[in-house]
Design a protein around this nucleic acid. Structure first.
Lengths: 127, 127
DNA sequence: TTAATTATTGTTATATTATAACATTATGTA
DNA sequence: TACATAATGTTATAATATAACAATAATTAA
């Protein structure tokens, strides 16, 4: 169950068709009484933790999870268009199986991964 | 050929055994006459571009490239210990082959990827 | 159902990370 | 030389994120 602020902020992120930044969220929710960055960041932290949203690390922005496979944000993959900045979550069972089973030679036990692919989306590559 | 500032900053990063942040680099190079953040960021941008260093996106920090396989920073993978924050670059031919050949269903042509694994390193997992 | 605990909220201030804009100097190249 | 390109220096400021403290709401255990 999401709290009031968490719900407000999740709704904004879900409605946005593109990744959205913390301060842009803040701007959008000020009319709803959320006035301070920290209120936004706290909700974001929680939403990331429970897997409702993901952070696109290379862009400092947030998207709603579109994928039932990335259990609680433990395994995420995105494609990012370097021209239009469109981001989409990759849902590919072979890929996620491969990465989950990947074990580094150093013997580290992985709990989580994040993968970001960069290139040109279909639209931008014909331009 | 690296320029003066690029060389100074690359040397700092290479000597550091751990990822280092921009303002920590700035602090380290002030005695060498580099006074402003922008001087550091410009050198960092260039060093990333030519593949001498990589940015650890989830940590906003930088490491020297240890891997001849990530041609000009196009294909990078790291393991990150969530306890001690040790970062090491993963050099695994099968992994990089797999990811380079990965093509998203959306038809995007990838030019680059960055993968970050999180977990506990050997040392931290026995603690 | 009270008491204790934990999660959430509100608020101000501040820390951290990064870039804009402009002027100058150095380096490479036709 | 003249031209182009890359690198530098500098001031100011933008953008991203957290510290610290106080209050309130929700959950759980006795």
């Amino acid at each position: 169950m999401l709290s009031k602020n968490q719900q407000i902020i999740f709704d904004i992120i879900e409605k946005a068709k593109e990744p959205i930044k913390a301060y842009s969220i803040l701007f959008n929710v000020q009319k709803k009484g959320i006035k301070a960055p920290l209120q936004v960041y706290r909700a974001l932290d929680k939403l990331v933790e429970i897997g409702k949203i993901h952070k696109i690390e290379s862009r400092n922005s947030f998207v709603a999870c579109k994928n039932s496979n990335c259990q609680i944000s433990k395994a995420t993959a995105f494609s990012i268009c370097e021209s239009c900045e469109e981001v989409s979550e990759i849902s590919d069972n072979k890929l996620s199986k491969y990465l989950k089973s990947f074990q580094n030679k150093a013997g580290m036990k992985f709990k989580k991964y994040n993968l970001e692919f960069f290139g040109l989306c279909k639209k931008c590559s014909v331009k």
